[in-house]
Design a binder for these strands. Structure first.
Length: 898
DNA sequence: GGAATGACTTGCCTTTACCTTG
DNA sequence: CAAGGTAAAGGCAAGTCATTCC
């Protein structure tokens, strides 16, 4: 409450108010959720209110109960929360010095938190030093406008009819409005912001929103997006490029979707963070110019914290054994350097590249050797004898019998090529078409069935046995703290399943042996024992500038590696995650200036500059990925810099129709209203080119990112995605959370989460049982409706003193008094309403994946602070893994704003 | 300057765990 | 308790981006 509130809250509020109704989007029908739409906004203030109120008892209780830590006050928090962490994290950007210290402190802190409340205290202290409260964000406050995603500014398709129509999805709202808000923000920003939005608005929607404010703008994206989702998958063919995504499922959608609306806003991703920090310092200063205070403040904090940490660290080490903890720490102390050259590289300025000081782990575990089953496949109708190695591949193929992969020529050819290498030149098996894997397939099915039929005890015993074998590999001790290892199991051999039309699908992924694996471990610790007798590791390194524990060459692409890293809950990952979000928050302070700059360059005489401006605009507004070049032996997908002429179709006066396959061959389809200069520039870029030529022929991700770095230290294309996703969530939560019970608040959150997912084009295939599930819900609703009719009849009879009629099942019902009947009717009605709401949401989200954005794009502090403000138990929003992953964010102040 | 390398993050799908219902 | 659903975990493929190499 204290601090944070300020800035941020304000901003949002403002917007909201202005808009009143608008919310841009609502527009579309889709919006289902009631919550969402609300026009009003609540104002920011809620925060304060919230707290005090405390809501219902239950909430609070709930919270307490659940959460581990239950720290006193804040329900939200969980154990982890210690502030320190955060502080430490900050370090990245800031200075190194802290580093060492950080670690220590952190670790200690962490531990404490985990287990006890004390944590709090401790934590608190550390943080505070800076004086500020945790929230760094201050800066934010002003930003309001800028902050908002571009989308918001431009309505993007929303308004337009086309767009709207397009979207089927609920979300789309459209038009967004964009009004910009600018308001408070810095002057510059505001202007910048405004321009875009204004333009749009004016043109497109016009006014509707003129007022709309940014906030709305923000949302807009979502609305537009939706459609994509749907169609996307189908895609495969659609897009000109024509790729498919996953062989199997893909097809779905196509038909439908027309284009949807535009998405908007930009986005970019987040992340990375590690090293970045280093440079940051110096640069930052520069940046700041624009930035807001926030940044600064943040920095401050960071620095401070570190100190405390130092001490902690040691402690941590001690505790190491403690099982649970994930504690964090990391830090970068300087240790010796690594032996390798790498170390050299690392260090630019700040923190050197050191990632850890001591690292102990047990290596990796290998899949069991192949056990021949002896079941013979048929070739031209006759049983064939195969060696175990040959049979292993035959079994891999057999298991894929009922997948779509088997219908793909590329897959079949690749499999056969690799299998032939094992069969030898003179083998009877010459081609796949004459192979009949049915016997093996059936054997496999029966094995599966057997496993399923095992008694619970047997299953339990097997599970325990497996756990026993794996336990030692599950943990690593990093700087004295026990941390979970992410993927300690070496990938088993199998057939490569690429996504989309991958040229290598079906290739044999050979078995990985210890001699393929390079281990990375602290110099002082014992070298992990090779789990396979008689074999040995390929190499053992001691490189503390990297975080991997082991790696092997990817057998499908021998130029690439497969790494074993710590789990997401580790402090090393947590710190990097926090740095990612801090960078995105820093962008908030520069965004106005950046938008202003690229807007100015839409008409730059220098083609390269013009392309950079337009590309940056698309990345900002539509949350497109950077788009690195790809090799011929990969699926043909694109990102911003690799967009082809045929992927972007201009439709006068200023609509762009985007249609392409992006990461994982997920189709991106959108119609967006853009500013006239952008529209014109795109037309120029397309002129004289073939459909398959690059739209941005003077551009690649290296040039683009180099340019972005000039605008803000550490800035790269993906940061826009993180920024837009998080600012959208923050803004929507603050505008749309009204009172209500927990489930209503959660619905608001889900709505915001959905908008973000749409912006980022995070899709999922519709589950096989979706339609059945919907039918089932309909049935249940009907049953309830019938029940109500029956109850009403009984009620009127009861009022007359008559007994109830027999139930539909013919049974006699007991007598109920009118009051009870009325109560039951009300309850049933509430049940129906809830089911209908659930049904709508389910339909609405059938193609939208909320998880990806929650895991990778939404600053968890936004969620934690919101939960604290509205008394929503954090466990309602984060599952166990997310709670662990976001331990670093748990102690954020309720007033935190992105 | 551009390709290659290397290290990490991001993302969809499948499998597993868990819960509810008949 | 089996069947069915769903959410969480796990698996890996596929991106991003910094740095090094040539």
């Amino acid at each position: 409450m204290e601090n944070g509130s300020d800035s941020e809250d304000d901003k949002p509020l403002v917007f909201k108010r202005s808009n009143p109704s608008v919310k841009q989007n609502h527009v579309k029908p889709d919006v289902k959720k009631s919550s969402m739409q609300k026009p009003d906004g609540k104002s920011g203030r809620q925060v304060s209110d919230v707290r005090s109120p405390n809501g219902n008892g239950h909430d609070s209780n709930i919270q307490k109960g659940k959460t581990v830590p239950s720290t006193k006050g804040s329900p939200v928090l969980s154990p982890l929360a210690s502030p320190k962490v955060s502080s430490s994290s900050s370090k990245g950007s800031q200075v190194k010095p802290p580093v060492a210290s950080t670690k220590a402190s952190t670790s200690g802190a962490d531990k404490s938190r985990q287990h006890f409340q004390q944590n709090k205290t401790a934590t608190v202290k550390s943080e505070k030093p800076s004086g500020k409260p945790k929230d760094e964000p201050d800066s934010g406050s002003e930003d309001s406008d800028d902050d908002k995603p571009l989308n918001s500014r431009l309505p993007v398709g929303g308004s337009k009819g086309s767009i709207s129509e397009v979207n089927k999805r609920p979300g789309s709202s459209g038009p967004a409005s964009s009004a910009k808000p600018e308001i408070g923000v810095k002057e510059e920003d505001s202007e910048d912001d405004i321009p875009l939005s204004h333009k749009f608005k004016q043109k497109s929607n016009a006014g509707e929103s003129s007022n709309a404010y940014d906030s709305e703008d923000v949302k807009p994206f979502a609305s537009k997006h939706q459609q994509n989702g749907t169609s996307a998958r189908d895609n495969v063919k659609n897009p000109s490029p024509a790729l498919n995504k996953r062989p199997s499922a893909e097809v779905k959608c196509s038909g439908q979707s027309p284009v949807k609306k535009a998405k908007h806003t930009a986005a970019s991703t987040p992340v990375n963070g590690k090293k970045v920090p280093v440079r940051a310092e110096p640069k930052k200063e520069d940046d700041d110019s624009d930035d807001d205070n926030a940044t600064i403040s943040q920095r401050v904090k960071k620095t401070v914290t570190p100190v405390s940490k130092t001490s902690d660290k040691k402690k941590a080490a001690v505790s190491v054994s403690s099982s649970l903890n994930k504690v964090n720490k990391n830090s970068k102390k300087i240790t010796k350097s690594t032996q390798f050259s790498k170390s050299l590289k690392v260090p630019p300025g700040s923190g050197e590249g050191q990632k850890w000081t001591t690292l102990v782990h047990n290596g990796v575990i290998f899949p069991p050797p192949y056990k021949p089953h002896g079941v013979k496949m048929l070739y031209k109708g006759k049983p064939v004898d195969l060696t175990p190695e040959q049979e292993e591949v035959a079994t891999m193929i057999a298991v894929m019998q009922d997948t779509e992969y088997m219908t793909k020529p590329v897959f079949r050819e690749n499999v056969m090529n690799d299998w032939k290498k094992l069969l030898g030149r003179n083998h009877v098996i010459k081609n796949l078409d004459d192979c009949d894997f049915t016997p093996i397939y059936e054997w496999h099915q029966s094995e599966k069935e057997k496993k399923k039929q095992m008694s619970t005890e047997e299953k339990k015993a097997m599970k325990e046995e497996k756990l026993k074998q794996e336990e030692k590999y599950m943990w690593a001790i990093v700087d004295g703290v026990k941390e979970k290892v992410g993927n300690f199991r070496v990938e088993p051999p199998g057939l490569f399943r690429g996504r989309g039309e991958h040229p290598k699908m079906g290739k044999l992924k050979k078995r990985i042996h210890p001699s393929d694996i390079t281990i990375n471990i602290g110099e002082d610790g014992p070298i992990p024992e090779c789990p396979i007798p008689g074999e040995s590791w390929k190499e053992v390194r001691h490189d503390n500038t990297v975080t991997w524990l082991a790696y092997w060459l990817d057998p499908i692409n021998m130029k690439e590696f497969k790494y074993v890293f710590l789990a997401a809950s580790s402090s090393l990952k947590g710190q990097s995650d926090k740095e990612k979000y801090e960078k995105a928050r820093k962008l908030k302070g520069h965004i106005a200036g950046i938008r202003k700059a690229y807007t100015k360059d839409f008409a730059n005489k220098d083609v390269t500059k013009r392309q950079i401006a337009v590309a940056t605009y698309l990345i900002d507004k539509l949350a497109l990925r950077a788009g690195n070049e790809k090799d011929d032996d990969e699926a043909d997908t694109v990102g911003c810099c690799t967009l082809k002429v045929e992927n972007v179709e201009p439709s006068p006066p200023n609509i762009l129709k985007l249609d392409f396959l992006g990461k994982d061959s997920i189709r991106y389809q959108n119609e967006v209203e853009v500013e006239i200069p952008v529209f014109k520039a795109i037309q120029q870029f397309r002129s004289g080119k073939e459909g398959s030529d690059n739209l941005f022929d003077k551009l690649d991700t290296t040039k683009l990112n180099a340019h972005l770095k000039e605008l803000m230290p550490g800035l790269s294309a993906k940061v826009f995605r993180t920024y837009n996703a998080s600012i959208t969530l923050d803004d929507m939560l603050n505008k749309e959370t009204k009172g209500g019970d927990i489930s209503q608040k959660v619905a608001v959150y889900q709505h915001a989460n959905k908008e973000v997912a749409i912006i980022c084009n995070h899709q999922r295939t519709v589950s096989k049982s979706h339609s059945t599930q919907m039918l089932r819900l309909d049935e249940k609703i009907k049953e309830l409706r019938d029940l109500i009719e029956e109850l009403k009849t009984d009620l009127s009879r009861a009022k007359k003193g008559k007994p109830p009629l027999k139930g539909s099942d013919g049974k006699t019902k007991r007598n109920m008094n009118p009051e009870s009947l009325e109560k039951k009717i009300a309850q049933t009605n509430a049940k129906i309403e809830k089911m209908e709401r659930d049904k709508e949401i389910k339909e609405d989200l059938k193609t939208v994946a909320l998880g990806t954005s929650k895991i990778n794009y939404l600053d968890p502090r936004i969620t934690v602070a919101w939960c604290k403000r509205y008394e929503v138990p954090i466990e309602k929003m984060f599952n166990k893994s997310l709670l662990a992953k976001f331990a670093w964010a748990m102690d954020v102040e309720p007033t935190f704003r992105f």
